[in-house]
Design a protein around this nucleic acid. Structure first.
Lengths: 150, 150
DNA sequence: TAATGCAGTTAGAATCATTCTAATTCTAAA
DNA sequence: TTTAGAATTAGAATGATTCTAACTGCATTA
């Protein structure tokens, strides 16, 4: 009996469409697509619960576990970013352009700030020789213009 | 009956010694002092549990609630810093010199990196007019030299 | 000195975010 | 059509943090 030929799980067809990003890839199931679309259509850095609420309008039976599962897959594929600004719930962000997060300490709002100039962290901080930088997360905390005006 | 004269709770005496830092102040009770000393003597950014373990060698009866309580007071007084690098436990840092955190994604180690040059976040990112910056948190993720050498 | 008030402390309960588990369903390949 | 593997689900479990209510001890006031 000949050995079974290996399947090719990466072949796109029907629902099994994949996006290759940064060397990784995800199978974009309907739920993952919805979670991604909700996040891509949000600029407020929603939490997993907020994403669940928004996806529910389209898929009323989706569970929180599935939302976390989708978010983990999308994050490890590099399609979205996980943002930790405070204790408590994590927030998610689908803005893949280079940016940093401004966090208003008064109202809690999170605003994306885009680069005005090239930023090379290696120029500003002394890291031990041999250190390899994969990514940087800059959080700027302060008071947003609306709160500062009050 | 004359109204009671207000006490002056800020008057230092005996245990009631305070440190004024950044406009805020804390009453340095023995536990707060021990928590601070443990953190000041650590360079590994311990979690609340790790701090509890270390403080216990001096104060065997201290509780986790007290450690959290002390850490919150020390943090809001600006004597220590709260560091969020990953989901899960928060980490604490008593290095008050300007610095950023390098986080090794392989071994989990956190290393303080000190500035090699002046860094002005306002120069590199477009923030809405009127935004007030209070502080910035930069986390650099990557592979430390020891892990990179393997 | 005794009474009082308040901040600090405590153990344990409660809460909240996240992860795990086991059963079920779906998809695509054989 | 069968099968294997991945996705999905509800609910349980876990883990981190916060809350609660009682207690302690210092410092002020009587």
């Amino acid at each position: 009996m000949p050995p079974p030929t290996p399947r090719n799980p990466a072949k796109p067809s029907g629902l099994d469409c994949r996006l290759a990003v940064l060397g990784s890839d995800v199978r974009l199931t309907p739920h993952r697509r919805e979670v991604f679309d909700v996040l891509a259509g949000s600029t407020d850095h929603p939490t997993a619960y907020e994403i669940l609420d928004r996806v529910k309008s389209r898929s009323p039976h989706i569970s929180l576990a599935t939302v976390y599962n989708c978010l983990d897959h999308l994050t490890s594929a590099g399609l979205i970013k996980l943002v930790h600004l405070e204790r408590g719930q994590s927030r998610y962000c689908a803005n893949l352009h280079e940016h940093v997060h401004f966090h208003c300490e008064k109202c809690g709002k999170v605003i994306d700030a885009h680069p005005a100039a090239d930023f090379d962290p290696g120029k500003f901080w002394n890291l031990p020789a041999g250190t390899k930088i994969a990514r940087t997360d800059l959080a700027i905390h302060g008071t947003c213009s609306a709160c500062a005006a009050k």
